[in-house]
């Protein structure tokens, strides 16, 4: 069976038993159809379950209902299908940058030497030349995120999940990292799912933006971003961009308000 989509989420949701013994719906149901090689952002109010969604997609958490298909095969509950990166760089502090970057290959059983030979050109090309034998503690936050992202890229999965990867970086570093991420995406032709709080970042980077409702998070809005590529940073001042951003923010603020009211009421 040929699939039009790279990945499909069908009715994915998360329910757990609350303290009073009743089931609590934390997420979903969520339906998503993700075409190949797309850059897709997910934005939503805090606590809406974006991270839970990523944990389900990456196989670290079981979905309570529904299924996930990649290339027509059911994959929910399986790890190793996607590359996953979090806001924390999660580099192993006792390994050098080079040894950190090859971790995924090492786990797959590829000999260290071979893995290193594969990784070194990437480190050189993507701004970590001269740091390959440093330890994470010796690097700045931006550099560490680069290494973490390269580790995810080296792990060579077609779908990559990025959970607020630049959330902890300062504005300048973040802008630099966005350019860098777009370069990587271009070079490696991955399908990227990107969670962020920053609507501007979402629109600037993505082909499609999903806006989620407050908890239990479902898809409220699916925006197509047909800004031409390659995009220049100046594009954020163009009328088309501003129009998209205004619309997206209006949708989001409705949900943020609702989340706030829910919290105050509860």
């Amino acid at each position: 069976m040929m699939n039009a989509y790279k990945m499909e989420l069908e009715n994915v949701s998360k329910t757990y038993l609350g303290t009073d013994g009743n089931p609590v719906n934390a997420l979903g149901p969520i339906h998503m159809q993700i075409p190949n090689h797309r850059f897709i952002s997910i934005v939503g109010p805090s606590g809406c379950g974006k991270s839970t969604l990523f944990n389900i997609i990456s196989g670290l958490v079981e979905t309570s209902d529904g299924a996930i298909y990649v290339g027509g095969n059911r994959v929910d509950g399986l790890t190793g299908i996607t590359g996953y990166m979090l806001q924390k760089d999660l580099l192993l502090p006792w390994r050098t940058i080079l040894d950190n970057v090859i971790l995924g290959l090492e786990i797959e059983g590829i000999p260290k030497k071979e893995a290193k030979a594969k990784a070194l050109p990437l480190l050189y090309k993507y701004g970590l030349k001269g740091f390959e034998h440093h330890y994470p503690a010796q690097l700045s936050g931006g550099m560490r995120q680069r290494a973490a992202l390269l580790r995810t890229i080296m792990y060579d999965r077609e779908i990559i999940l990025l959970d607020e990867p630049f959330g902890a970086l300062d504005a300048q570093t973040r802008a630099m990292m966005q350019e860098w991420l777009l370069d990587l995406w271009d070079d490696f032709q991955k399908t990227i799912l990107f969670v962020t709080h920053d609507m501007e970042e979402a629109i600037y980077l993505s082909d499609e933006v999903y806006i989620m409702t407050s908890r239990p998070g479902t898809i409220k809005r699916h925006l197509m971003i047909d800004l031409p590529r390659p995009r220049k940073p100046q594009i954020i001042t163009s009328p088309q961009f501003i129009e998209l951003k205004e619309e997206a923010l209006r949708t989001l603020s409705e949900e943020t308000m609702r989340a706030y009211q829910q919290e105050s009421a509860g």
Binding site: S58, G59, L60, T79, G80, T82, Y84, L86, K88, L90, L92, L103, G104, E106, I107, E108, Y155
Partner: peptide, 22 residues
């Protein structure tokens, strides 16, 4: 760090690999 363990599992690691590497 639980996230570190989660990350290594997400790379498809076995329990033995998590034990040895983390």
């Amino acid at each position: 760090d639980k996230d570190l363990v989660r990350m290594v599992y997400s790379l498809g690691a076995s329990r033995m690999q998590v034990f040895r590497k983390v």
